[in-house]
Each structure stands twice: as C-alpha cells, then as structure tokens.
C-alpha cells in the first residue's frame, strides 16, 4: 500500500433511515479507518438527522445504527463537521445532537468533543482542502 496520507472527507447529506446511504457510508468510514488516512466527516442537509440523539427505530423494523457514531472516536475518527445552516433550516441546535467525543492520547486521554459546528462558507473551504470526498 502507498504511504501517502490523504485528507478524506465523508460528506453525509441524507436522513438516516429513508435510504441506506447513511448506513453504508458509515460502513466505508469504519473500513477506511484501517487505512491510516486523515479522516473527517461532514453532515449537511438532511444528513444532520443522522446524529440527532434519542433515535428510536423500534416501529420501523430497521436497525438503529446511531450508536455506531459514538464508537468513531475509538477508530481515530474525531473530526465531525456539522453545517450550521442545515441545523437552522431544520429547527435543530447542537443540543439536539448526540454528544460525540474522543480521547486525546497526547493529553493524557482527555475527553474532547468530536463535533464542530461550522458555517456553510467554512465547510466549503474545508471541502476545498480535501484530497478525496466520498459523497453519500
């Protein structure tokens, strides 16, 4: 395998259960974590619903995969961008989202927030700085 390290962004644009894109995106993230790239995730449009807390799919006959997002920190996936405008347009705030954290090995395993709310303009710059954008 090449030793190049690239900036990978997974762009999550869709609500979690209406289509399979969100879940199959997460499967790529988990597999991709083994490749030691610089990984971040972005949640935009209805994609912000993927990380809303208190998800309950018991009436849908579908697996609730939202706990998987809490495990991302253990895979060294700890840069999660959420677009402010997408939250605003849906009447959501950061308090409606799961509290996703990671432990910083370099600071005595201090617990840090994985989610960063950014503006649409900031996110555009973040996307521009990527080598690879997986769009789901």
């Amino acid at each position: 395998m090449s030793e190049d390290i690239k900036n990978f962004l997974y762009l999550n644009r869709r609500a979690p259960y209406g289509t399979i894109y969100a879940w199959e995106s997460l499967e790529v993230v988990l597999i991709g974590a083994a490749f030691d790239q610089k990984v971040s995730l972005a949640f935009v449009d209805d994609g912000v619903f993927q990380i809303v807390k208190g998800q309950d799919t018991s009436d849908l006959d579908m697996k609730n995969f939202s706990p998987t997002y809490s495990a991302l920190g253990d895979y060294d996936v700890n840069q999660l961008y959420v677009e402010q405008e997408s939250l605003d347009e849906r009447g959501l705030t950061i308090d409606d989202l799961m509290h996703l954290t990671w432990e910083d090995e370099d600071e005595d395993w201090a617990e840090k927030d994985s989610i960063r709310v950014v503006s649409r303009a900031e996110l555009a710059k973040i996307i521009e700085g990527q080598d690879v954008v997986f769009s789901f």
Partner: peptide, 20 residues
C-alpha cells in the same frame, strides 16, 4: 470484494469520481 478496495482506489488515484 471488500470496501477496502474502494478506499485503496481513492488513495492510489489522483481523482475519485462518484456517480449518483
């Protein structure tokens, strides 16, 4: 084959082009 083949392809190529 596995999803690793997708990740490897993205690493090895200059551009990943997604259709959908």
């Amino acid at each position: 084959s596995g999803l690793g083949q997708l990740v490897e392809a993205a690493i090895q190529s200059e551009r990943l082009v997604v259709f959908g």
